[in-house]
Amino acid sequence: MSDIVLACASHSPKTLAENLGKSPAVRDGALPLVVQTNAPSAALAYNAAIDETDAPIIVFAHHDVYLPQGWDDLLRARIAELPEDWAVFGSFGVGLDGQSYGPVWSSSLGSIVGRVPLDPVPVQAFDELLIVLRRDSGVRFDPELRSWHMYGTDIVQTALAAGRGAYAGALPCIHNDKSHLALDGDFDAAYRFMQRKWQDRLPLQTAVTKISRSGLHLWRGHLRNRRAAKILTEMAVETSSPVEQLASRCGWSVLVP
């Protein structure tokens, strides 16, 4: 039995094969991969993966993520550094100070994003690209969040509400994501859900916007994206770029614990 299992919700076999499927740990079988297809929401897909596996550690990754050579060994080293209370760990998170911690490569932004922490950093939210969950924490995704957004923030707050820890750390990976020029209705619905569920903890800073009681920041996010559409388009790197090449250019061809 593997101590770590990788779970993914995918609607595109091609995207999966050209990104996560190319990860050396996946290709060589070091990290067993469980794929959920046609799921109505991220929470339902990921809870199903929890129920269908028995590894102590579950890594939930987007299908457009690539894990460079040595990533699985680096993950084990980072887990060993975590405080005993940890329930969830992420490659990219928003600290309690509002700063972003990584580092990860984002094709949609054409750059490496996130500060590099020397130690695990307590967070208030994750970007959903990659989330590590400790099975014996008992933490699960909320099936009432019927969305593909905000579950990175929700799982952090769920862990904290249960008295467990949520951290980000230096766990580099490639997010070969497409440019996001607009926030859709699904995003708006997830924002409203989080407003209601976590009203006693607001404001919460996510990787995309701030969740506030007034909701003003959601409106600002829509306006900002419209105004920045041209700039965002120019920043983005084509997702057809080989992920191994992107990792090499980041200096991440081989990760060493």
Rank of each mutant, 00 (worst) to 15 (best):
A25P: 04
R76H: 14
W198P: 00
P203T: 07
G102W: 00
W219P: 04
L6I: 08
C8Q: 01
V243Q: 03
V59E: 02
T206K: 00
T15D: 15
D73M: 14
I57H: 02
I112F: 09
I174G: 01
V237H: 05
L75R: 01
K197D: 07
I4F: 05
L74R: 05
S108N: 07
V243L: 05
L216I: 15
G114Y: 01
V132W: 03
R140K: 06
V256H: 14
R249H: 13
P172K: 01
Y151D: 09
I50N: 06
A159M: 10
R76C: 12
P32D: 09
G98W: 14
D154C: 10
W148E: 07
R249A: 08
A207W: 10
Q69T: 10
P68H: 10
L246A: 07
I131T: 04
A45C: 06
S12K: 12
R220D: 12
L216V: 14
K230Y: 12
R249Y: 13
V116P: 01
S147P: 08
I57M: 07
L145H: 05
G221A: 13
D54V: 07
D3C: 11
R196G: 13
L204V: 13
K230S: 11
A229Q: 10
G221P: 04
V156H: 00
A9C: 15
A61H: 02
N225C: 00
N176T: 12
V256G: 14
A168K: 00
P172E: 04
K210R: 14
V59T: 06
A80P: 11
P172S: 15
D200Y: 15
L20F: 06
E52I: 13
D188V: 07
S240F: 05
A236K: 00
S248R: 08
P117R: 15
T239D: 10
A80I: 15
F92G: 01
P40A: 08
A39I: 09
D184W: 00
P172L: 04
A228V: 03
H62Q: 08
E81T: 10
E52F: 09
R226L: 03
N38A: 11
M194V: 14
A170F: 06
P242A: 09
D184Y: 01
A48Y: 04
D200V: 06
W252N: 03
G110Q: 05
A30P: 08
A87D: 01
G221S: 10
P32W: 01
A236T: 00
L109I: 11
